Deep mutational scan, measured.
Amino acid sequence: KVTYHVPNEEFARKLYKKAVDANLNVEIRVENGQFIIHIE
């Protein structure tokens, strides 16, 4: 399980798409202006 803290929405979207394309379980949320992405 990996967690990324991404300040940039564009990068967060790319990361999310890559994980989904790889059939990984992804959860994304915004906290204090940062995008928190959990990948399992």
Rank of each mutant, 00 (worst) to 15 (best):
V20D: 02
E27W: 14
P7C: 15
L15A: 03
H38R: 13
Y4C: 15
V20Q: 11
I39T: 01
Y16F: 09
I39E: 01
E40F: 15
V26M: 03
E40V: 12
K1N: 09
R13C: 15
K17V: 06
F11E: 15
I37D: 00
V2H: 12
L24K: 03
Y16G: 01
N8E: 05
F11L: 14
V20H: 06
E40I: 13
T3N: 05
V6W: 07
K17M: 09
A12K: 03
E9P: 04
K1E: 06
Q34K: 09
V26T: 01
N23E: 05
Q34V: 15
I28A: 01
E10N: 04
A19P: 02
K17N: 07
K14W: 15
I39Y: 03
Q34P: 01
E40M: 14
V20I: 12
N23P: 02
V6R: 02
Y16M: 06
Q34T: 11
Y16R: 04
K1W: 15
G33K: 03
Y16L: 07
P7T: 15
K14A: 12
V20K: 12
I39G: 01
G33M: 04
D21Q: 12
E31S: 08
Q34L: 13
E10Q: 07
N25P: 05
K18Q: 12
A22Q: 07
V30F: 14
E27K: 09
R13N: 06
F11W: 14
G33Q: 03
R29T: 09
H5T: 13
V20P: 01
I37Q: 00
I28S: 00
I37N: 00
V20F: 08
V30S: 05
D21S: 10
R29Y: 12
N32F: 10
I37G: 00
V26L: 02
I39D: 00
F11K: 06
N23R: 09
I39K: 01
R13F: 10
A19V: 05
E10P: 03
K14G: 03
A19T: 03
A19Y: 13
I28F: 10
I37C: 03
D21L: 13
A12T: 04
F35R: 01
H38K: 10
V2K: 10
P7G: 13
E40T: 13
K18N: 08
E27Q: 10
E10C: 15
E27I: 11
L15N: 02
N23D: 04
A19W: 11
E40R: 13
E31N: 05
R29G: 02
G33F: 07
T3I: 12
K1S: 13
D21I: 09
G33C: 10
V26W: 04
A12C: 15
V2C: 15
Y16A: 06
V30Q: 08
K17S: 05
N8Q: 04
A22V: 06
L24E: 01
Y16E: 01
N25L: 12
N8L: 11
V30D: 02
V20A: 06
H5W: 14
D21G: 07
E9A: 08
E40N: 12
G33A: 03
F35I: 07
Q34I: 15
T3D: 05
P7W: 15
Y16P: 00
L24P: 01
R29H: 10
V26D: 00
E9G: 05
N8D: 10
R13A: 05
D21W: 11
I39Q: 00
Y16V: 06
T3K: 06
H38Y: 13
N8I: 09
K1M: 09
V6L: 10
K14L: 12
R29I: 13
V26N: 00
Y4K: 02
K18D: 08
K14R: 12
E31F: 09
V20T: 08
R29F: 11
K18S: 09
F35K: 00
E40K: 10
L24D: 00
K17F: 09
G33D: 03
N23K: 10
V30H: 08
I28G: 00
D21C: 12
N25D: 07
N25G: 05
F35T: 02
L15F: 06
F11M: 14
K1P: 09
K1I: 11
T3V: 11
E27D: 06
N23T: 06
H38S: 15
I28T: 01
R13K: 09
P7V: 14
K18P: 01
V6N: 04
F11P: 01
H5Y: 14
D21E: 13
E31P: 02
I28N: 00
N23M: 10
E27M: 10
R29V: 11
I39M: 04
P7F: 15
H38C: 11
I36Q: 03
E31Y: 09
K18F: 14
L24V: 04
E10H: 07
T3H: 08
G33N: 05
R13T: 04
Y4W: 10
I37E: 00
H38N: 09
A12E: 02
V30N: 05
V20G: 02
Q34N: 09
H38T: 15
E40Y: 15
Y16S: 01
V2W: 14
Y16W: 09
I28Q: 01
V30G: 02
V26A: 08
E27H: 10
I39R: 01
I37R: 00
L24N: 01
E10I: 07
E27N: 06
H5F: 13
L15I: 09
T3Q: 06
G33L: 04
N25A: 10
Y4R: 04
H5R: 13
N32M: 07
A12W: 13
I28Y: 04
E9Q: 06
L24T: 01
K18M: 14
I39F: 06
Y4E: 02
Q34C: 15
I37H: 00
A22R: 07
N25S: 11
K14F: 12
L15T: 01
